[in-house]
Design a protein around this nucleic acid. Structure first.
Lengths: 229, 229
DNA sequence: TTGATATTAAAACAATTGTTTGATACAAAC
DNA sequence: GTTTGTATCAAACAATTGTTTTAATATCAA
C-alpha cells in the first residue's frame, strides 16, 4: 500500500501535534514544557526542534492544524426574515459557542486554544482575533441586530453581543470557581444544552428590555432635538 | 518623631509589596519574575527571601495586605422591602464589581488579584474563593432572590448570578480582545458607569424573563403532577 | 550492497530563575 | 568600645528550560 500525501508526515510529527495541543490547552503556552510534551508524545526532546524549529513553531503548527476544521464550525450568517428565526439562530449560536468552549473533543479544540489566547496572549494573538474572534463577533452582532431592529445604535448592539459572549466564556475561564461555588453543575452534553437554554433566555430578556428602553429613549429625544448624536 | 508600629516595617518591605502587587496583577504569579519585582522596588534580589522567605511568601503577604481593605468594599446584604430597592442594590453591586475589576487604583487591587486567581489558580486559590468569591456570590444570590420571589428554584437563581458575574468578568479577562474588537470602549470612570448601566439593564431583562418563564412552567407542572423535583 | 537522506537518541549548552551565602555597613545595647 | 542584631548587597548556586550538537539508526533508491 503506497503512502498517501498525508500519511507521509511522520508519525512522530503527528504525535507531537496531538500531545502539545493537549498541553497548550491545559497549561497555556508558557507553562507547557517542551520536555513534558515530548514525553507525552513518546518522542525525543530534540524532535520538537527537528520538526518545528522551535516551541513557537510547534504552537503555530498546532493552530494551523486546528484552524481548518474550526472554520467549518463557524455558523454562517443568514438573513433573518422573522424574529423567531433569529431567536432560533441565537440558540444555535450560543449552543455551538459553549460546545467549543466546554466539550473536550478534538473537534472543538480550537475554541479552547482561542480562549487561552484571550487571557494569555502570545505572538499569535492578533491573527487569531482577526481570523476567528472578529468574524464570530460580527456574526453575533448581525444576529442581535435582527432581533432589535435597525433603529438601535450599533454600540448598544455591540454591548449586547459582549454580554452574550461574556456569559458563555465565564464557564470556561472560571471553570474551577464554578466547580467550587456551584458543585452540582456538570459538563455533560445534557448540562451544556441546559446551560445554553438559560443563557439564551436570559439574553433574549436582556436584549428585549434594552431594545424597548432605547426605542423609548430615542422617541423622547427625537421629539425634543432634531437628532441624537 | 518616634516611629509608630506601622512605620517600623522597613521601607524596603513596603516597596516590595507595592512593586510585586503591580507585577502579580499584570503578569500573574508564574510570569512575574523575582528579579523584575526587586528592580521595580529598587531593592536587592535577596530582599525578597530575606523579608518573605520565598516568592510564594511574598505573594501570600500581598494577598494579606490587600485583603483587609477589600473586605470593607464588599457590599453587605440587606433585606429588600421593594423590588425597586433590590434593583438599586443590583446597580450598586454591578458598579462596585466593575470598579474592582477595571479601575486601576490601589483601593481596588484585590479584585484584580482575585480575577487572576480565577484563571491561573495558585496555592491561595481555595482560600480566596472561600474568603472573597463565595460571600460575594451568596450576596448576589440573595439580591436576585428578592427580585424573582421565593418560588423560583435556587439553581435558576444561581444561573442568573453567574450570568451577571460573567458579563462583568469578561471585560477584565478579555480586556485585550475588547480593545481590538470594540476600540471605542474606554476604561474611564464614566465609561465604567455606563457599562454598569448596560449590564444592569440587560440583566434585569434577563432575570425578569426567566422569572416569568419559570413561574409559568411551575404553574403548568404543578397542575399536572403533585410537585416538581 | 552501497550511499544518501531522513529520523531518532543521548548528551551537552546557554539562558533564565528562585534561592542561598558570606561580606559589609549601621545602629542600638551593654 | 565592643557586641549584637538588622539590613543590604554582590556573587554564586542549583534547578529548570528551550535549543543545539553529534553520533547512531533507519529508510530506501541506485
Amino acid at each position: 500500500m503506497t503512502a498517501s500525501e498525508t500519511d507521509l508526515e511522520s508519525d512522530t510529527r503527528k504525535r507531537l501535534i496531538d500531545a502539545s495541543t493537549e498541553m497548550f490547552v491545559e497549561c497555556g503556552f508558557g507553562a507547557a514544557k517542551v520536555r513534558d510534551i515530548a514525553a507525552r508524545a513518546n518522542a525525543n526532546i530534540a524532535a520538537v526542534n527537528y520538526y518545528f524549529g522551535s516551541k513557537e513553531g510547534l504552537y503555530a503548527a498546532v493552530i494551523q492544524h486546528h484552524a481548518a476544521q474550526a472554520m467549518e464550525n463557524i455558523s454562517q450568517r443568514r438573513r433573518h426574515e422573522s424574529t423567531s428565526a433569529a431567536q432560533a439562530d441565537l440558540r444555535n449560536y450560543v449552543s455551538n459557542f459553549l460546545k467549543r468552549l466546554l466539550v473536550d473533543t478534538p473537534q472543538f479544540t480550537m475554541g479552547k486554544i482561542i480562549a487561552r489566547e484571550m487571557i494569555e496572549p502570545t505572538a499569535a494573538f492578533e491573527l487569531i482575533v482577526e481570523k476567528f474572534v472578529r468574524p464570530q463577533f460580527v456574526g453575533l452582532n448581525s444576529l442581535i441586530r435582527s432581533l432589535v431592529g435597525e433603529e438601535i445604535p450599533a454600540e448598544t448592539v455591540r454591548r449586547c453581543s459582549l454580554s452574550v459572549v461574556g456569559q458563555c466564556l465565564y464557564y470556561q475561564c472560571a471553570r474551577r470557581v464554578v466547580g467550587l461555588i456551584d458543585p452540582e453543575f456538570g459538563y455533560q452534553a445534557r448540562d451544556i444544552e441546559r446551560l445554553a437554554g438559560h443563557i439564551v433566555d436570559f439574553s433574549l430578556g436582556g436584549i428585549g428590555r434594552i431594545a424597548r428602553q432605547r426605542r423609548h429613549d430615542r422617541r423622547r429625544t427625537t421629539s425634543k432635538r432634531k437628532n441624537r448624536n
